[in-house]
Simulated scan of single mutants.
Amino acid sequence: MTEDVPTTSAIREMAKTARGVMAPQCGLAPGLIGIVGADLANRFDRLRDIELRVGALPRYPNGLLGYSFTWSPAGVINEYINDCEVIANGNVKLVPALDGIEVINIEGQEFEAFSTSGGLGTMCETYAGRVDTLNYKTIRYPGHCRLMRFLLYELILKDKRELTEQILTEAKPPVREDVVYVYAVVEGWKNGQLAREEFYRAYHPRRIDGKHWRAISWTTAGSVAAVVEMVADVVLPQQGFLKQEEIPFEAFLNTENGAFFREKAEVEFS
């Protein structure tokens, strides 16, 4: 489930001689968002832009950060500090994390989004030479990025990751009610006409087998479990390195765990 690039590179090297399939990055981002983005991209004859956005947020934010650490603080800090691989003007390059801030309006609610590392997984390699723009950004409530820049760079806490994790975890503990936003936009040409495809979902906590699951927990675990199902059912390759963008979205949704990601009205587990 890692967004860490060196870890994925090490797994990819192992996959060269592995007897089984090696499928890292099959959580939420990287993971589900890459599957969704590739599904949209496959609808075009020629691509121009792929823009992917994911946010795991408290549903009822408080404080200036508007955040809660419902998943690994170490992973969050990793995303906020390491450089981000993108395709810009047709070229694969690295850009700083916490850069490229933009405003997003989702159903009347304003958010910000900015570059964070690792969310694209192997997509830059897959789509190199095929798109002008490919990037991944994390969604947060307005003002979050500015404060994290202050904390990490003006106070230079980027050099003290363990201390930063401790401070943030104690200040912003997990909340029970969270929300995961998944938003993808792809532009390109179909039959000679410029077109745009979008995907948007807001995933909330739910009860599964009588247990309350936070949105970030079930979306991450559900994505991993769906990929495991597909490998077990021989829907996916049985050996070597598996890229998330190679996983068919419809087949993913047709698994027992992937069904959680369909519209809420269609699937309800209690």
Rank of each mutant, 00 (worst) to 15 (best):
G27V: 01
V76P: 03
P30W: 01
L47D: 07
C145N: 03
K16R: 14
E79W: 11
Q25C: 06
Q193D: 10
I11A: 13
E197T: 10
I139P: 05
Y136H: 03
A56P: 00
D83M: 12
M230K: 09
Q244N: 13
F260G: 11
C145T: 09
M148C: 02
V54L: 04
R140W: 08
I81H: 06
N105F: 00
L32K: 02
T126K: 12
A38N: 09
L242M: 09
K16G: 12
D132N: 13
I247S: 11
N78L: 10
F44M: 02
D83P: 12
I208G: 03
G192S: 00
P24S: 05
F44C: 01
Y80A: 15
L40W: 06
D233F: 14
A221F: 13
C26I: 07
D49Y: 08
T122S: 05
E13D: 14
R207P: 02
G63W: 01
T8Q: 06
M123P: 07
E102Y: 00
F261R: 08
S217T: 13
F249A: 07
A225L: 15
V185S: 10
I33T: 04
K243H: 13
Y153T: 00
V54S: 12
N82A: 06
V92E: 10
I208C: 00
T17Y: 11
Y80F: 15
T220K: 05
E79N: 15
R196D: 04
A221M: 12
I87R: 06
V92A: 15
E250I: 15
G192C: 00
D49M: 05
L152G: 03
Q109F: 09
V5Q: 13
G121E: 02
W218S: 04
R53H: 15
V231T: 07
Y60I: 13
N42I: 01
V5A: 15
E165Q: 10
F261N: 04
Y127T: 03
G55R: 09
M1R: 11
W218V: 03
Y136M: 06
P142A: 03
P142S: 01
T126A: 04
L163W: 12
F199E: 01
P96Y: 04
E85D: 14
P237G: 01
K93F: 11
L98F: 05
F44L: 10
R214T: 03
E110S: 06
A23E: 03
L151S: 07
V224L: 12
I101T: 15
Y136L: 01
T219H: 11
S270L: 10
R161S: 01
A265Q: 15
E170R: 14
K137E: 08
V227D: 04
D209Y: 12
W218M: 00
S117V: 00
E266N: 11
W213C: 06
K211S: 05
V180R: 05
Q239N: 07
Y183L: 14
A97L: 02
Q244S: 13
K16H: 15
Y127V: 09
G129P: 15
L64D: 15
Q193P: 08
S117T: 02
N89C: 04
V180Q: 07
G118I: 00
R206C: 01
